[in-house]
Protein backbone atom coordinates (compact mmCIF):
# COMPACT_ATOMS: atom_id res chain seq x y z
CA UNK A 1 0.00 0.00 0.00
CA UNK A 2 1.25 3.46 -0.87
CA UNK A 3 1.85 6.16 1.67
CA UNK A 4 -0.71 8.40 0.03
CA UNK A 5 -3.51 5.98 0.54
CA UNK A 6 -2.41 5.32 4.09
CA UNK A 7 -2.54 8.98 4.87
CA UNK A 8 -5.85 9.23 3.19
CA UNK A 9 -7.07 6.51 5.46
CA UNK A 10 -5.67 8.01 8.58
CA UNK A 11 -6.89 11.46 7.91
CA UNK A 12 -10.15 10.20 6.59
CA UNK A 13 -9.43 11.78 3.22
CA UNK A 14 -10.84 10.00 0.28
CA UNK A 15 -9.19 8.94 -2.86
CA UNK A 16 -10.62 10.55 -5.98
CA UNK A 17 -14.09 9.16 -6.41
CA UNK A 18 -13.53 7.64 -9.81
CA UNK A 19 -10.97 5.24 -8.46
CA UNK A 20 -13.38 3.55 -6.13
CA UNK A 21 -15.77 0.86 -7.10
CA UNK A 22 -19.32 1.64 -6.12
CA UNK A 23 -19.81 -0.15 -2.85
CA UNK A 24 -23.25 -1.53 -3.36
CA UNK A 25 -23.27 -2.96 -6.75
CA UNK A 26 -26.74 -4.33 -6.40
CA UNK A 27 -28.09 -0.85 -5.84
CA UNK A 28 -26.54 0.53 -8.99
CA UNK A 29 -28.39 -0.27 -12.23
CA UNK A 30 -26.54 -2.72 -14.43
CA UNK A 31 -24.39 -0.41 -16.47
CA UNK A 32 -21.78 -2.83 -17.60
CA UNK A 33 -22.31 -6.27 -19.07
CA UNK A 34 -19.97 -7.89 -16.51
CA UNK A 35 -22.07 -6.66 -13.65
CA UNK A 36 -24.41 -9.58 -13.42
CA UNK A 37 -21.67 -12.16 -13.63
CA UNK A 38 -19.83 -10.24 -10.94
CA UNK A 39 -22.81 -10.42 -8.66
CA UNK A 40 -23.03 -14.13 -9.29
CA UNK A 41 -19.37 -14.51 -8.44
CA UNK A 42 -19.88 -12.58 -5.21
CA UNK A 43 -22.75 -14.82 -4.20
CA UNK A 44 -20.69 -17.90 -4.99
CA UNK A 45 -17.80 -16.56 -2.93
CA UNK A 46 -20.17 -15.67 -0.10
CA UNK A 47 -21.59 -19.16 0.12
CA UNK A 48 -18.15 -20.65 -0.32
CA UNK A 49 -16.84 -18.81 2.72
CA UNK A 50 -20.00 -19.64 4.61
CA UNK A 51 -20.12 -23.34 3.78
CA UNK A 52 -18.79 -24.69 7.10
CA UNK A 53 -21.10 -22.43 8.99
CA UNK A 54 -24.06 -23.36 6.81
CA UNK A 55 -23.43 -27.04 7.42
CA UNK A 56 -23.35 -26.50 11.17
CA UNK A 57 -26.31 -24.18 11.06
CA UNK A 58 -28.61 -26.56 9.25
CA UNK A 59 -27.26 -29.77 10.75
CA UNK A 60 -26.79 -28.83 14.37
CA UNK A 61 -28.86 -25.76 15.06
CA UNK A 62 -31.88 -25.10 12.91
CA UNK A 63 -33.32 -28.61 13.00
CA UNK A 64 -33.02 -28.96 16.79
CA UNK A 65 -34.45 -25.46 17.07
CA UNK A 66 -37.54 -26.27 15.05
CA UNK A 67 -37.88 -29.53 16.92
CA UNK A 68 -37.84 -27.68 20.23
CA UNK A 69 -40.49 -25.29 18.94
CA UNK A 70 -42.63 -28.29 18.15
CA UNK A 71 -41.93 -29.77 21.58
CA UNK A 72 -43.14 -26.59 23.24
CA UNK A 73 -46.65 -27.48 22.05
CA UNK A 74 -46.48 -30.97 23.49
CA UNK A 75 -46.33 -32.86 26.72
CA UNK A 76 -43.05 -34.76 26.52
CA UNK A 77 -41.21 -36.66 29.24
CA UNK A 78 -38.41 -38.01 26.97
CA UNK A 79 -39.54 -41.60 27.41
CA UNK A 80 -42.84 -41.46 25.64
CA UNK A 81 -43.46 -39.81 22.30
CA UNK A 82 -44.49 -36.16 22.57
CA UNK A 83 -48.24 -35.61 22.83
CA UNK A 84 -49.68 -32.48 21.17
CA UNK A 85 -51.44 -30.21 23.66
CA UNK A 86 -51.61 -26.94 21.74
CA UNK A 87 -50.94 -23.79 23.73
CA UNK A 88 -51.43 -25.43 27.13
CA UNK A 89 -47.78 -25.04 28.14
CA UNK A 90 -47.80 -21.35 27.31
CA UNK A 91 -51.10 -20.79 29.08
CA UNK A 92 -49.81 -22.55 32.18
CA UNK A 93 -46.65 -20.42 32.08
CA UNK A 94 -48.45 -17.13 32.22
CA UNK A 95 -51.51 -17.96 34.26
CA UNK A 96 -50.65 -20.76 36.63
CA UNK A 97 -46.99 -20.76 37.47
CA UNK A 98 -45.87 -18.31 40.16
CA UNK A 99 -42.37 -19.78 39.97
CA UNK A 100 -42.05 -18.75 36.33
CA UNK A 101 -43.24 -15.21 37.05
CA UNK A 102 -40.74 -14.86 39.88
CA UNK A 103 -38.04 -16.38 37.72
CA UNK A 104 -38.75 -13.91 34.91
CA UNK A 105 -38.68 -11.00 37.34
CA UNK A 106 -35.36 -11.81 38.93
CA UNK A 107 -33.83 -12.59 35.55
CA UNK A 108 -34.87 -9.17 34.25
CA UNK A 109 -33.42 -7.45 37.30
CA UNK A 110 -30.22 -9.41 36.88
CA UNK A 111 -29.96 -8.45 33.21
CA UNK A 112 -30.91 -4.80 33.55
CA UNK A 113 -28.70 -4.10 36.55
CA UNK A 114 -25.92 -6.60 36.04
CA UNK A 115 -25.10 -6.01 32.38
CA UNK A 116 -24.52 -2.24 32.52
CA UNK A 117 -22.48 -2.56 35.71
CA UNK A 118 -20.40 -5.32 34.22
CA UNK A 119 -19.87 -3.42 30.95
CA UNK A 120 -18.91 -0.24 32.73
CA UNK A 121 -16.42 -2.08 34.92
CA UNK A 122 -14.95 -3.90 31.93
CA UNK A 123 -14.65 -0.75 29.83
CA UNK A 124 -13.15 1.30 32.64
CA UNK A 125 -10.61 -1.39 33.33
CA UNK A 126 -9.80 -1.81 29.67
CA UNK A 127 -9.21 1.93 29.34
CA UNK A 128 -6.96 1.84 32.36
CA UNK A 129 -5.02 -1.06 30.91
CA UNK A 130 -4.80 0.59 27.51
CA UNK A 131 -3.28 3.71 29.03
CA UNK A 132 0.13 2.18 28.95
CA UNK A 133 1.49 -1.12 27.65
CA UNK A 134 4.48 -1.46 29.92
CA UNK A 135 3.47 -3.43 32.99
CA UNK A 136 -0.07 -3.88 31.78
CA UNK A 137 0.47 -7.54 30.95
CA UNK A 138 0.48 -8.54 34.58
CA UNK A 139 -2.72 -6.67 35.29
CA UNK A 140 -4.41 -8.03 32.20
CA UNK A 141 -3.72 -11.53 33.43
CA UNK A 142 -4.78 -10.67 36.95
CA UNK A 143 -8.13 -9.27 35.84
CA UNK A 144 -8.75 -12.14 33.53
CA UNK A 145 -7.84 -14.81 36.07
CA UNK A 146 -11.32 -14.99 37.68
CA UNK A 147 -12.81 -15.80 34.29
CA UNK A 148 -10.43 -18.70 33.87
CA UNK A 149 -11.79 -20.69 36.74
CA UNK A 150 -14.51 -23.03 35.61
CA UNK A 151 -17.98 -22.70 37.06
CA UNK A 152 -17.12 -25.44 39.48
CA UNK A 153 -18.03 -26.26 43.02
CA UNK A 154 -14.98 -24.22 44.01
CA UNK A 155 -16.56 -20.97 42.88
CA UNK A 156 -19.60 -21.79 44.97
CA UNK A 157 -17.43 -22.58 47.97
CA UNK A 158 -15.42 -19.38 47.73
CA UNK A 159 -18.44 -17.14 47.05
CA UNK A 160 -20.44 -18.61 49.89
CA UNK A 161 -17.51 -18.15 52.25
CA UNK A 162 -16.78 -14.56 51.18
CA UNK A 163 -20.38 -13.46 51.57
CA UNK A 164 -21.26 -15.46 54.66
CA UNK A 165 -22.12 -13.97 58.03
CA UNK A 166 -18.82 -12.83 59.59
CA UNK A 167 -17.11 -13.60 56.29
CA UNK A 168 -14.70 -11.11 54.71
CA UNK A 169 -17.38 -9.01 53.00
CA UNK A 170 -19.58 -8.82 56.08
CA UNK A 171 -16.62 -7.92 58.29
CA UNK A 172 -15.43 -5.21 55.94
CA UNK A 173 -18.87 -3.65 55.69
CA UNK A 174 -19.35 -3.89 59.45
CA UNK A 175 -16.13 -1.93 59.85
CA UNK A 176 -17.86 0.91 58.03
CA UNK A 177 -20.93 0.50 60.18
CA UNK A 178 -23.01 -1.41 57.64
CA UNK A 179 -24.36 -4.59 59.15
CA UNK A 180 -25.90 -6.71 56.43
CA UNK A 181 -24.98 -10.16 57.65
CA UNK A 182 -24.56 -12.96 55.14
CA UNK A 183 -25.55 -12.38 51.52
CA UNK A 184 -25.88 -15.78 49.92
CA UNK A 185 -28.50 -16.98 52.39
CA UNK A 186 -30.51 -13.76 52.33
CA UNK A 187 -33.25 -13.55 49.67
CA UNK A 188 -32.78 -9.78 49.45
CA UNK A 189 -29.02 -9.86 49.03
CA UNK A 190 -28.35 -12.97 47.01
CA UNK A 191 -29.11 -11.22 43.74
CA UNK A 192 -26.52 -8.49 44.38
CA UNK A 193 -24.06 -11.24 45.28
CA UNK A 194 -24.80 -12.92 41.95
CA UNK A 195 -24.31 -9.64 40.09
CA UNK A 196 -20.99 -9.09 41.83
CA UNK A 197 -20.00 -12.58 40.77
CA UNK A 198 -20.82 -11.69 37.16
CA UNK A 199 -18.83 -8.47 37.42
CA UNK A 200 -15.94 -10.35 38.97
CA UNK A 201 -15.82 -12.57 35.89
CA UNK A 202 -15.76 -9.64 33.47
CA UNK A 203 -12.48 -10.75 31.91
CA UNK A 204 -13.83 -11.80 28.52
CA UNK A 205 -15.68 -8.52 28.03
CA UNK A 206 -12.64 -6.57 29.15
CA UNK A 207 -10.37 -8.39 26.72
CA UNK A 208 -12.74 -7.69 23.84
CA UNK A 209 -12.78 -4.02 24.77
CA UNK A 210 -9.00 -4.06 24.92
CA UNK A 211 -8.72 -5.66 21.51
CA UNK A 212 -11.06 -3.01 20.18
CA UNK A 213 -9.02 -0.24 21.76
CA UNK A 214 -5.86 -1.68 20.28
CA UNK A 215 -7.34 -1.48 16.83
CA UNK A 216 -8.02 2.23 17.03
CA UNK A 217 -5.25 3.86 14.99
CA UNK A 218 -3.03 5.86 17.34
CA UNK A 219 -2.86 8.56 14.71
CA UNK A 220 -6.43 9.51 15.46
CA UNK A 221 -5.52 10.29 19.06
CA UNK A 222 -2.43 12.16 18.07
CA UNK A 223 -4.39 14.20 15.61
CA UNK A 224 -7.05 14.97 18.19
CA UNK A 225 -4.38 15.91 20.67
CA UNK A 226 -2.87 18.28 18.15
CA UNK A 227 -6.27 19.85 17.84
CA UNK A 228 -6.07 20.54 21.55
CA UNK A 229 -8.61 17.99 22.67
CA UNK A 230 -8.28 16.96 26.32
CA UNK A 231 -8.55 13.38 27.55
CA UNK A 232 -12.32 13.48 27.96
CA UNK A 233 -12.83 15.06 24.55
CA UNK A 234 -10.54 12.49 22.97
CA UNK A 235 -12.53 9.76 24.63
CA UNK A 236 -15.79 11.14 23.27
CA UNK A 237 -14.50 12.10 19.84
CA UNK A 238 -12.24 9.15 19.06
CA UNK A 239 -12.59 6.29 21.50
CA UNK A 240 -16.36 6.10 21.73
CA UNK A 241 -17.15 6.16 18.02
CA UNK A 242 -14.22 3.94 17.03
CA UNK A 243 -15.06 1.49 19.79
CA UNK A 244 -18.80 1.60 19.19
CA UNK A 245 -19.00 -1.65 17.20
CA UNK A 246 -17.23 -3.42 20.02
CA UNK A 247 -19.40 -1.73 22.63
CA UNK A 248 -22.41 -2.81 20.66
CA UNK A 249 -21.10 -6.33 20.52
CA UNK A 250 -20.39 -6.49 24.24
CA UNK A 251 -23.73 -4.92 25.10
CA UNK A 252 -25.69 -7.34 22.94
CA UNK A 253 -23.73 -10.36 24.01
CA UNK A 254 -23.72 -9.21 27.62
CA UNK A 255 -27.49 -9.01 27.61
CA UNK A 256 -27.90 -12.33 25.88
CA UNK A 257 -25.39 -13.93 28.22
CA UNK A 258 -27.08 -12.46 31.28
CA UNK A 259 -30.46 -13.76 30.15
CA UNK A 260 -28.93 -17.18 29.82
CA UNK A 261 -27.08 -17.13 33.12
CA UNK A 262 -27.05 -20.69 34.33
CA UNK A 263 -23.81 -22.09 35.64
CA UNK A 264 -23.23 -19.57 38.41
CA UNK A 265 -26.78 -19.85 39.73
CA UNK A 266 -26.65 -23.61 39.47
CA UNK A 267 -23.48 -23.94 41.48
CA UNK A 268 -24.17 -21.19 44.04
CA UNK A 269 -27.62 -22.53 44.87
CA UNK A 270 -26.57 -26.14 44.49
CA UNK A 271 -29.12 -26.45 41.72
CA UNK A 272 -32.03 -25.41 43.93
CA UNK A 273 -32.48 -21.80 42.78
CA UNK A 274 -32.70 -20.70 46.41
CA UNK A 275 -32.84 -18.91 48.77
CA UNK A 276 -36.58 -18.46 48.34
CA UNK A 277 -36.23 -18.85 44.57
CA UNK A 278 -34.11 -15.72 44.26
CA UNK A 279 -31.45 -17.38 42.09
CA UNK A 280 -33.94 -19.42 40.11
CA UNK A 281 -33.01 -17.69 36.86
CA UNK A 282 -34.94 -18.58 33.76
CA UNK A 283 -32.48 -21.08 32.30
CA UNK A 284 -32.05 -22.77 35.65
CA UNK A 285 -35.81 -23.07 35.93
CA UNK A 286 -35.96 -24.36 32.36
CA UNK A 287 -33.26 -26.88 33.14
CA UNK A 288 -34.96 -28.11 36.29
CA UNK A 289 -38.27 -28.48 34.52
CA UNK A 290 -36.74 -30.31 31.59
CA UNK A 291 -34.11 -32.48 33.17
CA UNK A 292 -35.11 -32.93 36.80
CA UNK A 293 -38.88 -32.97 36.36
CA UNK A 294 -38.98 -34.60 32.93
CA UNK A 295 -41.27 -31.88 31.55
CA UNK A 296 -39.39 -31.36 28.30
CA UNK A 297 -42.31 -29.80 26.47
CA UNK A 298 -42.83 -27.27 29.21
CA UNK A 299 -39.10 -26.54 29.30
CA UNK A 300 -39.15 -25.95 25.53
CA UNK A 301 -41.98 -23.47 25.98
CA UNK A 302 -39.95 -21.59 28.59
CA UNK A 303 -37.01 -21.56 26.21
CA UNK A 304 -39.10 -20.11 23.42
CA UNK A 305 -40.55 -17.40 25.62
CA UNK A 306 -37.00 -16.53 26.60
CA UNK A 307 -35.91 -16.59 22.98
CA UNK A 308 -38.69 -14.26 21.90
CA UNK A 309 -37.97 -11.80 24.69
CA UNK A 310 -34.26 -11.76 23.91
CA UNK A 311 -34.99 -11.45 20.20
CA UNK A 312 -37.18 -8.40 20.80
CA UNK A 313 -34.47 -6.76 22.87
CA UNK A 314 -31.84 -7.64 20.28
CA UNK A 315 -34.07 -6.21 17.56
CA UNK A 316 -34.46 -2.94 19.44
CA UNK A 317 -30.72 -2.78 19.99
CA UNK A 318 -30.03 -3.33 16.31
CA UNK A 319 -32.48 -0.58 15.47
CA UNK A 320 -30.76 1.91 17.77
CA UNK A 321 -27.45 0.92 16.24
CA UNK A 322 -27.59 3.47 13.43
CA UNK A 323 -27.72 6.25 16.00
CA UNK A 324 -24.56 5.42 17.81
CA UNK A 325 -22.58 2.62 16.23
CA UNK A 326 -20.00 3.62 13.70
CA UNK A 327 -18.46 1.20 11.22
CA UNK A 328 -15.35 2.47 9.47
CA UNK A 329 -15.81 -0.16 6.83
CA UNK A 330 -19.08 1.44 5.81
CA UNK A 331 -17.62 4.86 5.32
CA UNK A 332 -18.49 6.29 2.00
Amino acid sequence: MTTTSTRALVTGRRLPKGRLMPRRRNEAPAQRPGQRRRQWRETLAGYGFLSPWLLGFFGLTIIPMIYSLYLSFTRYNIFQPPRWIGFDNYIRLFTNDPQFIQSAQITLIYVLVGTPVMLAAALATALLLNYRDKGAGFFRSAFYAPSLIAASVSVAIVWRALFSTDGPVDNTLSFFGINLGGWVGNPDLVLPAMIILAVWQFGATMVIFLAGLKQIPKELYEAAEMDGANALQRFRAVTMPMLSPVIFFNLLLGIIGAFQVFASAYIISNGSGGPAGMTNFITLYLYKRGFSDGQMGYAAAIAWVLLVVVAIIAFILFRTQRNWVHYSGDNR
Binding site: R160, V184, G185, N270, G274
Partner: peptide, 10 residues
Protein backbone atom coordinates in the same frame (compact mmCIF):
# COMPACT_ATOMS: atom_id res chain seq x y z
CA UNK B 1 -32.85 -20.03 60.62
CA UNK B 2 -33.38 -20.62 56.94
CA UNK B 3 -30.82 -17.96 56.09
CA UNK B 4 -28.10 -19.73 58.02
CA UNK B 5 -29.03 -23.01 56.38
CA UNK B 6 -28.70 -21.47 52.93
CA UNK B 7 -25.31 -20.11 53.88
CA UNK B 8 -23.80 -23.38 55.01
CA UNK B 9 -25.23 -25.33 52.06
CA UNK B 10 -24.23 -27.72 50.53
Amino acid sequence: GQQTLEEVAP
